[in-house]
Every structure is written in C-alpha cells, then in structure tokens.
Design a protein around this nucleic acid. Structure first.
Lengths: 327, 327
DNA sequence: ACAGGTTGTGAAAACGTTTTCAGTATCGGC
DNA sequence: GCCGATACTGAAAACGTTTTCACAACCTGT
C-alpha cells in the first residue's frame, strides 16, 4: 500500500542502500543520485521517521517541557527554541505541564520513551529537587527555574537582583509599605522573593509576603483578600505576568486607583502591560535570549557530556511605567 | 547498554512475546503479568516508541498545526485538543506555522513522515485551497478556517453572523461610518468581512475596508495610517485579537479617545480586553468547544473514513463593553 | 472419553529504514 | 603492467518492538 524505500529502489534500478545514501549523506555517484531523486518524485516516497529513528538510534528531537503554555513568557521562549532547533535540523516536542508534578513525570517518561536527544525543562520546585536522583537517558537544560546547584545546566534570570530592583524602585518612588505576592511552585518565585526580602531589609522596611498558585485566577482571589484586609500594602511586587494580571483585576474589583491607592510592579513585559491605564512597571525578560542560550547549552552538552555543569544568568531590564509613579 | 524488551523477558523468565502482551493488552496469566511487571520495575525498562510505532504501524499521535502560537485563541484551542487526545491515549505534536505557507508545507510533510493518525489544522487561505488536491496519508480536520466546501471536516465559528453582529451592534449604538480591518491570510477573515459587508449594505451604509497581515504590529501600522487619513471612520471592526490590539495601540498613538473619537469592536475575548480602559467589545469564541469538536470529528473520521464530510459551525457570543458605548 | 473450543505461551517473522561488510571498478604511482 | 588506495555499490544484518503461527494445556458439553 504505502510506498517504501524498496519501491524507490526498484523504480530507480538500484539497491535500497543506495537510495538511503542518496537521501542522506553518503558516497553516491551523481548519476545514481539523480536517478534516485527522480524515483522519489515519481513514487511520492516519504521516509518513515519511526523506522529511521529506530535504525539510526538518533531521534534528532528535543523535548521542550514548559509549565504553562498560556504564559506568554513560555510561548516566546518556545519560539526561540524552535527556531534554533530547526536551524540544526531538529524537531521539537512541546509539552505543557500546567505546573502539575504528575504531568511533569508523565512527560519525562514520554521523553525517555521517545529517546529524545535532549530536553529543555521548566520544572516545578519539587520536580527540580528530585531531578538530581532521577537518571534520565538524555541531557537536560533547565530554563527559568533551577534545582539544587550543579546538577543540570540552566539558564535563568538574575531573579534576586530583579526582585530587589523592583523594591528599590518602589522605595525611590516614595513607597514604604511594600508587599510581595509570589508564586508557590517555582524556584524562580523563591529567588525573586529572596531579592525582595533582601532589599526590604536593606531599606529597613517590614516585609509582607503572600504565596499563591501561579495563575491569574488564584492571584486575583488572594490579592482581593489581601487588599480588603486592614494591613493593605501601599505597593505590591508580583512575581510573574499572570499574578500581575490577577493583582490588577483585584485592585479594580476593590475600587483601588493605581497608583494612588496601590502601586504595582511585576514581571514579564507582556503586550497588554502598556495598554492598561496606567501602564504597569515590569521587569522585561530577554525571552529570545533565554531560548537561544538554552539550546546552545543543550547542544554543547550533547557534544561533550562530561563538561562541568554551567549556569547562564541573564539580567532583566526594568521598564518603569505609571503604576509606580512617585507619590 | 540500554535495556530492551529481551532484557525484561530474561529477567522475568518469559519470552519477549509475553512481555509485550503483558504490557499491552493481550491474554496473559495473572502470575506472569506480575512477574513481568516486577521485571520492568527491576530493570527500569522504557519501551522504545519508535520501534513500537514501526511494528504496530500506528503512531497514536495527532498533529496540531496552528497559525500563530502567540494568539491566545490557538493556545486555548490547543489545550482542549490536548486534553481530549490524552483522554484517548494519544500524543499531540504541536506545530506553529506563523501564517507562513512554506512552514505549513514543511509541517504537512513532517506529519506524513511521522505517519500520524490524524491532523487538526488551521491553514492559510492558499494552503486551504490547495489541500483538496494534495493526497495525504491521514484524515484532516480544519479548525477556525476552511477551504472549498466538502473537502475536509471542519469546525468553525459562524463568522458571517459574528461579523454582522458587530456591525448591527455598532449601528444600534449610533455609529454609521464603520470601517473594517481584516486579516489577509485566512478564510475566517474573509467570512467575517463578508458578514460585515452584508450588514453594512443592509443598513444602507458605505463599506470601508482595509486588509492587513494578521499580527499586532502590521495592524497597528495600517490602523495608524487609516486613522491619520481624512476619511477616518467613527468605528472599526477588527477581525481578530491581534488586530484588535494593534488598533488600540494605533488609537492611543493618534491620541484618539475610545469610544468618543473611535469605537472598536473585535474578536476574541482575551484576558486583557476587559483590563484596558474602556473595555473592548468582542465576540467571544467557544475555544474549548472548538478543540473538543475537532477531536470528535477527527476520531469519527478515523473510525469511518468514508462518511460524508461534515462542517460544525459554532456561534460566538458578543460581549458588549465600553469601547462601543452609545454616542 | 472424546470432539471442539478457549486460553496461554514461545519461536520466529515482520515493520522500514540505516549501516556494516564485502566486493568491483577505477585510478595514480611505480 | 602491477599494487595499493579510493570511490562506489549491493546483499544482508540490525534496530526493538508487535504480531502471526503453532502448539500445549485445559475446559465443556455430549
């Protein structure tokens, strides 16, 4: 029924070995190569990737496991990864875990079964920690989040610095009762929180921290409670774009004017953050750079598996907008 | 090196056939099944999916080819598709074409080479038209966009009705010089435009139409030109969420107040559309339903390949917000 | 007690490629 | 004119599974 390499071989009057070589790279005379190419066109042959991968023991595929495909940060990173992969003739399998450890485990198993060449992974905290003891058949590069130092290559933002920068900015703008609402599932949120705490301490202020599942709905609910409470802060630091959106919604719901009643400073320069009124002060992440660096680390790890573990730390860029106007 | 089914068989003291049957569905005694499972755990065996697919001639994989992964409409649909696929024990390969026919062709070829079970596809107009003459080894369900009637199953919004509904709403709110800015690459934009034109004609108004690449940057540039021209419309209909965002940016850039100087009505109830001031009137698409229906059509087509082509048309829901306030 | 299932099992074939191995021309250098 | 490379080619093995085939063991109804 379906046309295979033997059909092409027969049509071209050569052996299957020659067809294989003509299609891949192998020594084939120009004459035969042309015959083969003609036969491929004539028969409409499509190589069977499963067979090719099985025999060649090389999937030419990298897995990209992200925590939330709705988060524009991850879609932006994934585009960069995909571009780099295609430039190297590799396929990408994109997986979305929804910050769910069970789905992370499932996808890691899937990657093993696919015998992928390598994986780029944004794990939840628990998985990141246990990754050290989990033997996997492929190299892993962590993005956005890391586990214990020294286990896997990684590329992350300088989160402590970024968290501190937001606090410093808010202090400079005249705010002092500065709260922080951080995601509960990632090392990244922890690091941003650590930067927040350090800066708060440095300025001699009192920290006020709440933790929440990193999605807009949970963040809105928690922020509403907080903003309705007596100890309502004057300003809020939000640890990612989804939480930032939740906070904006909560402020609206509570009838608080930004920045008069509540200043906001968060992460991820998403397209909508300068469309709302006032614009939102954010740390912009170098998303394309993160994806590209992750692919570079992965390729270099595949090239030389025994080299020491590396961690690439990139700086964010603060974009000050109306939401943190001086009071 | 890597542990295969023969190693498991040896460890369990059975044949490879028995291991295969114990892992899949096949008649195996309980005693042996347990032995096999123990051996799997002991050896850390992971089945090789390439080998499995090659032998069983079934990829258990569906391809999902979307036009723009940055468009929240497609990420939402893809989540629904993925959920349905996993519920049926299938994998999903997610591909992003960027509205580029060359990438569409590349991904279609990839799907052939992967021998996928089926494909869900949001094609550009040119590709949708030529799809009829392109023999593919798998069933295809078109989403969001269609080609010539009767060639492939599809699930789409009732776009003409939705386009007309926006015009009707604007007319009811007192606007009469209503322009339309539509995407250039999809059948969907065409249908929305047809609905716009029909409604404009029905109200005895004059149509004013511009066409643009369906991304925020191109839309903003075109809208800026238009809004700076003498024949600036009082209201604008925008054919998707990205174009809507471009229009908002253009209005801001030209210093036009919404809705006083310019009313806006668009598509896709994205999270930010009610965060901007004023909120934007949009047609909300039943994204989860679109994904679920597409999977249903695909499965039923796989089940019975010869059944007549079906087209599922879903209705959008208009959400009126401040951007179309009565004047 | 026997024919005719039914159930469980293993040996071996098969899936569609790539790669190894061996072989045949051809070539350059003596 | 011979010898060792070099370049190309085909036959067959190999990749890791699932599936077919054959068969043995056990039922079930007469």
């Amino acid at each position: 029924m379906t046309v295979g390499i033997r059909d092409v071989a027969r049509a071209a009057g050569v052996s299957t070995a020659t067809v294989s070589r003509a299609l891949g790279r192998g020594p084939v005379s120009d004459a035969l190569r042309e015959q083969v190419e003609a036969a491929v066109r004539a028969t409409g042959y499509r190589p069977n990737l499963s067979a090719r991968r099985l025999r060649s023991q090389s999937a030419q595929t990298i897995g990209l496991i992200v925590a939330d495909i709705r988060n524009p940060f991850f879609t932006a990173v994934s585009r960069a990864v995909e571009d780099a992969a295609f430039a190297s003739g590799m396929r990408v399998i994109l997986c979305n875990t929804d910050e769910d450890p069970a789905r992370e485990a499932m996808y890691l198993r899937l990657m093993e079964e696919e015998r992928v060449t390598g994986v780029i992974f944004a794990p939840t905290k628990g998985t990141a920690d246990s990754l050290r003891d989990r033997p996997l058949g492929f190299p892993v590069v962590l993005i956005d989040r890391t586990g214990p130092p020294g286990t896997h290559d990684s590329v992350v933002l300088d989160n402590p610095a970024a968290g501190a920068a937001l606090v410093d900015h808010l202090v400079a703008q005249g705010y002092s009762r500065i709260g922080g609402l951080f995601g509960s599932t990632s090392s990244t949120a922890r690091e941003r929180r650590a930067g927040y705490e350090a800066a708060i301490a440095r300025h001699g202020l009192t920290p006020a921290i709440r933790t929440v599942a990193p999605n807009a709905e949970a963040a809105e609910a928690e922020a509403r409670r907080w903003l309705g409470a007596e100890d309502r802060p004057e300003a809020l630091v939000l640890s990612n774009g989804l939480i930032l959106m939740g906070a904006v919604r909560a402020a609206r719901a509570q009838g608080l004017a930004i920045p008069r009643d509540l200043a906001l400073a968060g992460f991820d320069n998403e397209p909508w953050t300068d469309l709302v009124e006032p614009g939102l002060t954010v740390i912009e992440q170098p998303v394309a750079e993160i994806g590209a660096q992750a692919m570079r680390l992965l390729f270099e790890r595949i090239e030389s598996p025994e080299q020491p573990v590396r961690k690439v730390m990139l700086s964010g860029r603060m974009i000050a907008r109306g939401s943190t106007q001086a009071r």
